[in-house]
Simulated scan of single mutants.
Amino acid sequence: MKTSVANKYDITFGPLTAEHFDWLHARNYAGWVVLVDTNTREHCLPLIEEYLDHDNLVFIECEPGETNKNLDTCQDIWTNMFEGGVGRRWCAICLGGGVLEDMSGFAASTFKRGIDFLQIPTTLLSQVDSSVGGKLGVDFYELKNSIGLFADPIAVWIDPTFLKTLPPREVRSGYAEIIKHALIADAEQWSQLQQITDLSLVDWTQIIPQSVNIKREIVLEDPFERGRRKALNFGHTIGHAIESFFLETDQRLFHGEAIAAGMIMEAKLATSFSRLSATDYGAIETYFLRIYGHQSIPESAFPELLGLMRQDKKNEDARINFTLLEAPGKAVINKTVPEADILAVLRYYNSLG
């Protein structure tokens, strides 16, 4: 069991065993509340069910997907917690991807002013991104993660075995965050990733710890996103807006697909508003299009996308704020870009299709 310390909790890499749950038993919780969605209940829960041997167990099942990451679902979680007799000395075990982790961690951290929670991420996206850093929350007012808080789990257990339960599109979505980590902080890893063309052949046991440690180091330096941690937002100013827009259509994009498009556009902006070279940009554009293809964005949606970007949490005034690249492995935060240039890069991206 390989362990990496992140703030006040452990991140472990490798197969889940009885040893993990012995550690949890030793904390003497009055009970465990296990949160799953309909997918993880069917495909992931059977992989650990033999270890869920506490005398007081409550299971809560949620509907999967970003459209259910809201306060209504949290209310259902809280109701089930109360009706199940969950108390302050219980621990919530969150078995799921990023949507469930964000939401169940938020629900646990606010229930009776907060109970402990443990994260067992089951998707590539959650293993390399949402399970690290203590950001929790739900979507509100058509904005991703606009209601939430910072709270750390007692531990994160990352088992790549769960990735075998995923369809290829889910794996590809999570891979976008791995690329992002390399682009903002590890030029050598970026060079290595560009050699990958078939995600079904990747040895995730090597790549996941490397990617997690990039984020862990950034979070340790800046836990509340007042400085360097903003680098993790590369691709997300435009990407989150695209994701939110398509969420309301019949062409819903996965998170990583939207962020991949956002990284293409924000890297293009960096050639004008930072110091990213045309050569480095070309490599970024080529690789993302190879892995993710292209998603045309209706020009009629551009005003709505700008409106969503203006509401972005990273903005400190009326201007739209970005993290941009200076070079692969080096990001610069708090770069504002005029709306005319954002519109121009949206049109440029559409021209690539």
Rank of each mutant, 00 (worst) to 15 (best):
P46K: 00
N350A: 07
R290Q: 15
P153R: 02
K135E: 07
K335T: 15
Y51N: 02
R89W: 01
P64W: 06
N68I: 08
S274E: 13
D317G: 04
M309E: 07
V58T: 12
E83F: 10
M263N: 08
D102S: 09
T161A: 06
E101F: 02
R89D: 15
I291M: 13
W204Y: 09
E326C: 13
L24V: 12
H181N: 03
K112M: 15
D10R: 07
E142R: 08
L220D: 10
E221H: 05
G87R: 09
D152S: 10
N233W: 03
A108F: 05
K144V: 07
A318M: 06
S277N: 05
K230W: 09
V345M: 09
I93C: 04
Q311Y: 09
T161F: 00
G84F: 07
V33N: 07
K164R: 15
E304H: 12
D10I: 06
A301P: 07
E49P: 08
G133I: 06
Y175C: 07
N233L: 09
R252M: 14
D55H: 10
R347Y: 11
D102G: 05
I120G: 04
G256E: 13
Y51C: 04
P167R: 13
G96M: 06
A185H: 03
D280Y: 13
F150G: 03
A260W: 03
F162L: 11
G114Q: 06
G98W: 08
E339P: 02
L124D: 02
S131P: 01
V332G: 01
C94P: 00
Q192H: 14
L308W: 01
G85F: 08
L118N: 04
I218K: 00
I320D: 02
P153L: 03
G353W: 02
G14D: 02
D312P: 03
V58P: 00
A92C: 05
A340E: 11
V36K: 07
K112E: 13
E63C: 08
A26S: 15
A108T: 01
S200L: 10
L325R: 00
E61I: 15
I196T: 10
E42V: 12
A278I: 13
K230C: 13
L201S: 15
F162I: 11
N321F: 13
Q192V: 13
A182P: 04
Y349D: 04
G293W: 00
H20T: 05
N233K: 01
G84T: 04
F273Y: 15
P160N: 12
R89Q: 15
K335C: 15
L95K: 06
D186Y: 05
E49V: 14
